[in-house]
């Protein structure tokens, strides 16, 4: 059985929920089972938001993330909140523009900075930083096929689809370089 637990976290308004939905739809398209447990509470701008994804090729029993394989931190708050609990088995991606990795409390987790905001700006849509992060997730897990992500991202209005696909592809590249595969 293949299974990946992915934890996405950021602030309200950063597109955490949207990113998790796109990831989930791509996995569904690729014939995987996927569940997304959204964070509770009012998803107001500025509050800590998380989405727990479980991707599997079998039926998903417990839909929450207990031991994340991948953690994506969209903001400093999210990064600081979740990092201490992560182990050496978690691949951590964070936006190097908005997150300063903690120096005082070295984490066991393997950490990979992704210049997501920059990638998004270069692609022509500063709001597509979350899409760059999706590319990184695809690079880190065999369960998330990049072509399915492209398909889902291509559904929207043309211009936005183009920038999203571009940002995602760049994020994928940046992650691949660091993951060394």
């Amino acid at each position: 059985m293949q299974k990946a637990e992915v934890l996405l976290a950021g602030l309200g308004g950063q597109g955490v929920q949207l990113a998790s939905d796109i990831l989930a739809e791509a996995c569904t398209l690729a014939g995987r089972r996927v569940s997304v447990l959204p964070s509770y509470g009012a998803e107001a701008r500025g509050t800590l938001i998380r989405a727990e994804l479980v991707i599997s090729d079998e039926e998903i029993i417990y839909p929450g993330v207990l031991e994340p394989d991948i953690f994506v931190g969209f903001s400093q708050e999210a990064y600081d909140y979740f990092l201490p609990a992560l182990t050496g088995d978690t691949a951590v991606f964070y936006d190097s523009a908005s997150v300063t990795p903690s120096a005082s409390e070295p984490s066991a987790a393997k950490q990979y900075p992704i210049a997501a905001m920059e990638v998004a700006a270069n692609a022509g849509n500063p709001k597509a930083a979350n899409m760059a992060m999706l590319g990184a997730v695809a690079a880190a897990s065999e369960l998330v096929p990049k072509d399915a992500l492209e398909k889902v991202l291509s559904r929207g209005p043309k211009e936005r689809a183009k920038t999203s696909v571009m940002a995602m592809g760049k994020g994928y590249e940046l992650a691949m370089q660091q993951l060394g595969t």
Binding site: S20, D21, A24, R33, S35, P63
Partner: peptide
């Protein structure tokens, strides 16, 4: 319940 209501799944 609030889990199965808000859970997104294939």
């Amino acid at each position: 319940d609030a889990i199965v209501g808000h859970l997104r799944e294939s």
